[in-house]
Structure formats: structure tokens, C-alpha cells
């Protein structure tokens, strides 16, 4: 009696579950079959011990060296790359944002092309862009700045265009009714509406760019990554430790400041 009153489990769910299960199993069989797992190197344990002890006993002398090439200058370089790269992209992406916004052009296809272009830029890895810029302007921070500046257009343009799509057309109609020129409408009716969003997204992107800037040096595009990869290659783990610590502290401080500013703006 009591078993009869129990509701029967829906069948469709079970079939669906099995299909998902089998698909996942196949995916993992495929994934695991391709990866050569030939056991760890014998030295793995030793090296990880050296890394851990290096990270816990950082090379404090490296923080400031009078002759240059120290941690503080490396971090400052990284910060400068991120600031300049973010600013360039925040400036360059504005026309793309208006291009990709649905409500700015009469033809939907036009905005679609803009959106596709932005997603194309977004998927282009910034490190590869940095590699190409190194071939163009030579190794150094400038290549990093250009790579970040170009790559961030993809994400900032998308976020900005969403902000533009959300604007209220009331103020611009009112200005048009008073006989304002298109540029004046843009300046007094559109910009005040989108500016807080633009600034907030730019700060957000700055946080991301700071993280990217700290690895650009690995391929020779300036910043703290270059001394880090040298220290790793020469197995100077206590120096690796202090650099990692420096990156973590810098990123955390910048995140806190930027988060505070973003909260204040929005």
C-alpha cells in the first residue's frame, strides 16, 4: 500500500542522465588516453621542497638594489605597463563600442559585425599578440603595453557596448528638440549616462591587465616576469619566492583600491 502511493520517478530523466553519463565517460577516456603520464621525475620531490623552502625564506635583499633591476622597479614597470595598456584600450574601444551597440545603428547586421570583430579580438591570446609586437618594436615594456592595449579592446568594447545599449534616449531627444548638434547631444546626453559604467569597467580591466602584465615578461615583453623567469631558470628559489610575494601583495593592494573606487562610482 505504502509503496504504491510513492510517486514513480520520471523516466525521461533517467534516459537523459545515462546519455550525459556516457558522453562524459567517452570524453574522459579520450582525454586520458592522449596525455602521456610517464611518472614524475625523481627530482620532483626535492625540487618542490626547495621551492617551498625558497618561498618561505624569501630573498629580502632583492627588494631594493641600488644598482637597479630589483623587485620594486620590476613591480613599478609592471604597474606602468598595466596603466598605459588599459588607458590605450579604454580610449580606442569607444568607437568600437558604439559600432557594436544594437541601438546605435539602423541595421542590425552592422552591430553584429562589430560584435564579431570584438569577440575575435577577445579570443586572440594577448601573449601571442605580445610576441608579434616584440617582433615589431623589439623586446621590452613597450611591446607589452601595445599588446595589452590592443587585446583589452575586445573585452572593454563588449562591456562598453552593453552599457551603450542600456542608455535612455529621453535626454538626447530633449537636446535634439532644443537644436543641439550631434556632437553636443553625444557630449551632454549620452556621455554622462555611460561614463560611470565606462570607468568602472576600465578599472575592472585594469585589475586583469595587472595580472597579465606580471607574466608578459616571461616572453620578454617587460615587467616583473623577466627577472622571475631568470630566477626560475637559475633555480634561485628564494628570489622566486620574493618575486611571487611581491606580485601577490601588489595585485591584492591594487584590487582593494580599485574595488573601493568602483563601489564609489556605481
Amino acid at each position: 500500500m505504502s509503496s504504491a502511493t510513492r510517486p514513480i520517478k520520471p523516466k525521461k530523466n533517467i534516459v537523459r542522465r545515462w546519455v550525459i553519463f556516457i558522453a562524459l565517460a567517452l570524453l574522459y577516456i579520450w582525454a586520458l588516453s592522449g596525455v602521456p603520464i610517464e611518472g614524475f621525475k625523481e627530482t620532483a620531490g626535492q625540487i618542490s621542497k626547495a621551492i617551498v623552502s625558497g618561498i618561505f625564506s624569501p630573498d629580502w635583499d632583492y627588494v631594493y638594489l641600488p644598482e637597479g633591476e630589483d623587485l620594486l622597479r620590476g613591480l613599478l614597470d609592471t604597474l606602468a605597463i598595466a596603466i598605459l595598456g588599459t588607458f590605450i584600450s579604454a580610449f580606442l574601444c569607444i568607437p568600437f563600442a558604439f559600432w557594436a551597440a544594437n541601438n546605435m545603428s539602423k541595421f542590425k547586421a552592422n552591430a553584429g559585425i562589430g560584435k564579431f570583430f570584438l569577440s575575435f579580438v577577445r579570443t586572440f591570446p594577448e601573449l601571442v599578440m605580445a610576441l608579434l609586437f616584440i617582433k615589431m618594436v623589439g623586446p621590452g615594456s613597450f611591446a607589452g603595453v601595445l599588446a595589452l592595449g590592443l587585446h583589452s579592446i575586445g573585452m572593454l568594447g563588449k562591456l562598453f557596448s552593453e552599457e551603450v545599449e542600456n542608455i535612455d534616449f529621453g535626454p538626447s531627444e530633449a537636446l535634439k528638440a532644443t537644436g543641439a548638434r550631434p556632437l553636443q547631444t553625444l557630449w551632454f546626453a549620452v556621455f554622462p549616462q555611460v561614463l560611470p559604467g565606462f570607468i568602472s569597467y576600465t578599472l575592472y580591466r585594469f585589475e586583469i591587465n595587472l595580472r597579465s602584465a606580471s607574466v608578459l615578461g616571461i616572453i620578454g615583453a617587460g615587467g616583473i616576469g623577466t627577472p622571475l623567469i631568470f630566477a626560475m631558470q637559475s633555480r634561485d628559489w628564494s628570489r622566486v619566492g620574493i618575486i611571487l610575494l611581491g606580485i601577490i601583495v601588489m595585485v591584492t593592494i591594487v584590487d582593494i583600491i580599485s574595488g573601493y573606487l568602483r563601489k564609489k562610482i556605481v
Binding site: I51, R211, S214, I218, L244
Partner: peptide, 21 residues
């Protein structure tokens, strides 16, 4: 989350050697 994945990869390459692992 503050450590970029490329740095993690560089550290693990030092530990495990080259390869996908």
C-alpha cells in the same frame, strides 16, 4: 586567484619537467 596561470605552469614545469602534466 592572484597568481596568473602561466606562473603556476612555469613553477610546475620546474618541478615535473616539460610536457602536458
Amino acid at each position: 586567484r592572484t597568481i596568473p596561470e602561466l606562473l603556476l605552469a612555469a613553477i610546475f614545469v620546474a618541478i615535473f619537467g616539460l610536457g602536458p602534466l
